[in-house]
Design a binder for these strands. Structure first.
Lengths: 192, 192
DNA sequence: AGTAACCTACCTACTAGTAGGATGTGCGCC
DNA sequence: GGCGCACATCCTACTAGTAGGTAGGTTACT
């Protein structure tokens, strides 16, 4: 299936570029150079840049949330579920040539310059992730693994922001190891 | 002093554009349109875009950290210091036509596409903010306002990432009010 | 006279996107 | 089986618009 392969290659290159420098730093020419296909051919698969961005967000969200659901529904200890969830963000930073952040964190910064349906996709991604995190925290509280005051959903939103922000911030200094220590510190706050 | 005024107006417009859509969404033409000056005249004050970005980062960092130092050295209760510090991020979201995030949070996403000295300025900003936060937390711990396990510096890094990430994430949904509730929730975790 | 500020007019490079042609590849039809 | 049609893929070659940046002139203040 050479059709799908090219389309996938385009999306892979686009995603890589966006995770490293944002949507505005990704151009059809860059993709063209990266995978050895003519610029016009990319337009054949994705008529406009907005279509391409939308498709990449969609694919990313589906893939990411699929893994997250696997973690949520696993038999792991809630604390380890949280560790594994945070590990997804840490792993992204190590991937490939390094310094890739979460796609939707990157695009969150450029939200105002994005099309409305791309923005909607990102909003959805945020909501879905916070909901999953809330489930992990809820379960952890019930089982006595977490002890904290306040609303589970708020703590979920807090941790999500911390991970998205952390993935961006630690690229300046410390990298994935630093993000990891921040996650462990956060878990300490939730346990006592 | 008409000289300084124009220079300031350019920096103001540039900062506004960057806080809303990032450095790549800011162009000399946009600034030109915004403040009614010719594109070439901007080059008279800031020869290259990199110079402009650097200058804006520098000014922002100095201004922001000045306020932060005022908070750190004030006679406020440590918990209120933290509230006031977080309030700076919340206030940015409300400013002007709304949905402006912290400049250095925005540029953190585009770090890879920035010049080396702009990147150094951002790194510095992160470090300085975390250091100030750590002082607030340390003081709070000594005075018995905060009770948490683990390293103060790590918690500082955690809160900073939370605020930078939160400022980006809540623009998609909830806005400054949502960030505020997240901050209050975080304080709860530190007090128990 | 010198200089800072600002202008018009221009340059090159790159952006997203289009037109239209070449090459295939599968499918019904005789 | 061979023929031709339709469609997908990918190409070369182009467009208009915008990016950052420059050359060189005008104005005005010191």
């Amino acid at each position: 299936m050479p059709t799908t392969d090219t389309k996938t290659a385009i999306m892979d290159a686009a995603q890589e570029l966006m995770q490293r420098g944002g949507a505005n730093a990704m151009s059809y020419q860059h993709i063209s150079d990266a995978i050895g296909i003519r610029k016009a051919s990319i337009h054949h698969h994705f008529p406009t840049k907005e279509h391409l961005i939308e498709a990449v967000i969609q694919r990313y969200a589906t893939y990411f949330l699929g893994i997250v659901d696997g973690i949520v529904e696993s038999k792991l200890d809630p604390v380890d579920k949280l560790r594994k969830y945070a590990g997804l963000f840490e792993a992204t930073l190590c991937e490939g040539k390094q310094d890739k952040a979460c796609l939707c964190g990157m695009l969150g910064a450029e939200l105002a310059t994005l099309g409305s349906s791309a923005a909607a996709g990102i909003r959805h991604f945020y909501r879905d992730n916070e909901a999953r995190l809330a489930r992990i925290l809820e379960e952890g509280r019930e089982k006595g693994a977490f002890h904290f005051k306040g609303d589970t959903k708020l703590v979920a939103a807090m941790i999500f922001s911390l991970l998205e922000g952390g993935a961006l911030v630690v690229r300046a200094e410390g990298g994935h190891k630093r993000l990891h220590t921040m996650v462990e510190q956060t878990i300490k706050l939730l346990q006592r």
